[in-house]
Design a binder for these strands. Structure first.
Lengths: 242, 242
DNA sequence: GAGTGGTCTAGACCACGAA
DNA sequence: TCGTGGTCTAGACCACTCT
């Protein structure tokens, strides 16, 4: 009999990595908590320490884990800093990120539109929660945005005690048990309509940067849709190409 | 005597990596060429194969090298594909990148403005070459842009036989001996002026996406400034956050 | 000093590509 | 069949953090 010629070879460290992602997904490794040491993990998974290390290193480079020499390996969590800085690309004219303030305009639940259902991977016209808010940088209104999440993922969010926290991703993680781990953004230029112009204190028809974001949790599941309109007179969106 | 307590400890693989970047910079490893095998490099640098591998892996993740199992390790070069796809983030409504056509408007040399000199790391008012061109996707004019490079880096470019190639980064690499390895882009929304409106076949005052790019070669040296105005009715700028 | 992650080594074996 | 990069192991030692 011929031996099997690796019809679907998958390296050990990738299998280990997948098991680790499972633990992150089901929260047996919760955000902010510390993992067992490399040696313990190696013993537990029955592989060498080098193999565990390769899996951990990949998860670290994907920002799912954070390692610190002498202290240990931790599950990345949405601290205020991470939410505000890692997932907000607006910089001022010195290329520095500022801390935004948020002002809630409205929050309500309703049926998902067809395009929202597609973007969020929902079936038909399920219920969603919509949040409108404005954000200021250094006291000046710069962003007006609408946020859409499935009611299934955030039950009761529309009745959450106000004010909502500035950093929604922290809220999702702490109160609703899912973590945003990556996102894609589509940028276009649009003209301000009357409502946007009012929120941003510009004239109707002024050019605005429109940022449509879909945020994903582990394994690229979409969890949030966000459309932000940004006034770019004194700020710009910074993108690094490598 | 106390021993030195590692006042500036630098791992071996990083030292090896720096030596490798030197070879890339001085082109003793030229774009597109193949590197010696891991075993040979290990012998040459006097370190283990694992250490060489770690240096090579980092350079690969920075897109300076490309590795291929069974074939070897190669210096990344600016093929048409890399220039057009890796450094052009405009996608159509199906999230697909299209091949752009370029139409030269003008090319001339002149003195750098103060802001150009700052962006390109030049001293005072050195000479630069400015290229204006329009780019179409699927036959529709979508981008009008100005490109600025130091005359020192591209001597005689203003008299280059026309038409200029579609992919300038290939030209820089092949004819002027420097490679673009990374870039930063700042995005804002602006209103079309008369000239832009004409090039893009839109009305004066229409919103346009303004992309200011600084492109860098090895070791983060700035080499090119580019300001692109994009008509985003049917295309958008895609940015991935991880 | 004990425990953690980070570096470095040497060697075995596997998957892949090309001749 | 050979040479390449890719995986996996076992073990030694180093740098860092905390107690």
């Amino acid at each position: 009999m011929d031996e099997i010629k690796s019809p679907s070879f998958k390296p050990l460290y990738q299998q280990v990595k997948e098991l680790m992602v499972l633990r992150l997904t089901d929260r047996s490794w919760a955000p902010g908590s510390i993992l067992p040491s490399e040696a313990l993990l190696a013993a537990e998974f029955g592989v060498s320490q080098g193999t565990v290390r390769k899996a951990l290193d990949e998860l670290t480079s994907e920002n799912l884990l954070r390692r610190s020499q002498g202290r240990g390996t931790f599950v990345t969590e949405h601290t205020a800093n991470r939410s505000l800085f890692h997932f907000l690309n607006m910089v001022d004219q010195n290329n520095e990120k500022q801390i935004p303030e948020s002002h809630l305009v409205s929050i309500a639940s309703g049926l998902a539109t067809e395009s929202e259902a597609i973007d969020l991977g929902l079936i038909e016209s399920m219920n969603v929660i919509r949040i409108q808010r404005n954000r200021s940088l250094e006291g000046i209104p710069v962003i007006t945005e609408e946020i859409v999440v499935s009611s299934n993922r955030t039950p009761g969010l529309e009745n959450y005690p106000l004010p909502l926290p500035n950093t929604l991703y922290q809220l999702y993680e702490k109160d609703f048990g899912f973590s945003v781990t990556s996102a894609r953004e589509w940028l276009t230029a649009v003209s301000a309509n009357q409502q946007q112009a009012q929120h941003l204190n510009v004239e109707v028809g002024a050019p605005l940067l429109c940022v449509k974001r879909i945020a994903y949790t582990y394994n690229a599941q979409p969890v949030e849709l966000r459309i932000s309109l940004c006034h770019t007179a004194n700020h710009s969106y910074l993108s690094e190409l490598t």
